[in-house]
């Protein structure tokens, strides 16, 4: 098994650059103490992974990766970090001491998985029609929107629909948790937001109490 090819192609140079960037960003994500830097490193990792998907001729997955993970989920992460104004991670290492013993076996399992995937791919090189090939119907090629839709709505329709129900349940649950107080509370807030504002009189206004 020759891991290092004698001639190196243009694509491989790009791959090596992107892959090393992804690894560096991933390390930075773990090593940073400031949560906002960690979040930003994760965004970089996600974007670079999307670029790697493009190299694997899966542009649809790449675009979805950026739209969903980098563009929506991570925005919410950054939003929450900004809203709560978490500056530095509090040192809670003493409380999570048991994690230290969990890390080595998990790491070994991950490395094992990676090696299994590498061996599997090398022993059976798959023949995949590329989406750029005009002679093949888009539904048969790998990574095109058509082929993903095809398998999503035929072969995997049950897991797909079950996931949507799960997400719906999560939405309803979060609404229930967030909705503190009864109907009166909500009405009071809405009143304060809209109706009372123009009718405010001098007695209603806020007053500074304390220093100065």
């Amino acid at each position: 098994m020759n891991m290092i090819p004698e001639t190196i192609s243009f694509e491989q140079i790009i791959f090596l650059g992107l892959a090393s960037l992804a690894v560096v960003a991933a390390f930075n994500l773990i090593l940073q103490r400031n949560p906002i830097y960690s979040a930003l490193s994760l965004i970089v990792t996600l974007c670079v992974t999307a670029a790697l998907f493009v190299l694997l001729s899966a542009p649809f997955i790449a675009a979805i990766q950026i739209i969903v993970y980098a563009g929506a989920i991570m925005v919410l992460f950054v939003f929450v970090i900004m809203l709560l104004n978490i500056r530095e991670e509090e040192s809670r290492t003493d409380r999570q001491r048991y994690l230290k013993w969990l890390a080595p076996p998990l790491f070994l399992a991950l490395v094992g998985q990676v090696f299994f995937v590498i061996r599997y791919v090398q022993s059976t090189p798959p023949i995949i029609p590329s989406p750029t090939d005009p002679n093949i119907h888009p539904a048969q090629s790998l990574g095109s929107a058509e082929s993903i839709a095809n398998s999503l709505f035929t072969e995997y329709v049950l897991p797909f629909e079950m996931t949507s129900v799960l997400i719906l349940m999560a939405i309803v649950g979060s609404m229930l948790l967030a909705r503190r107080g009864g109907k009166e509370e909500i009405e009071r807030i809405e009143q304060a937001l809209t109706a009372d504002q123009p009718r405010a009189e001098e007695a209603d206004r806020m007053e500074l109490v304390g220093k100065e």
Binding site: I43, C47, A50, P59, F60, A63, I64, I66, I67, A70, G71, A72, V75, V78, P131, T132, P138, S144, A145
Partner: peptide
């Protein structure tokens, strides 16, 4: 041009928030 260029535009505009 590529087969998902519309999604590419949406992806880039969603990054613009940052």
């Amino acid at each position: 041009r590529f087969n998902v260029s519309l999604l590419y535009v949406l992806a880039m505009t969603s990054l613009a928030i940052y």
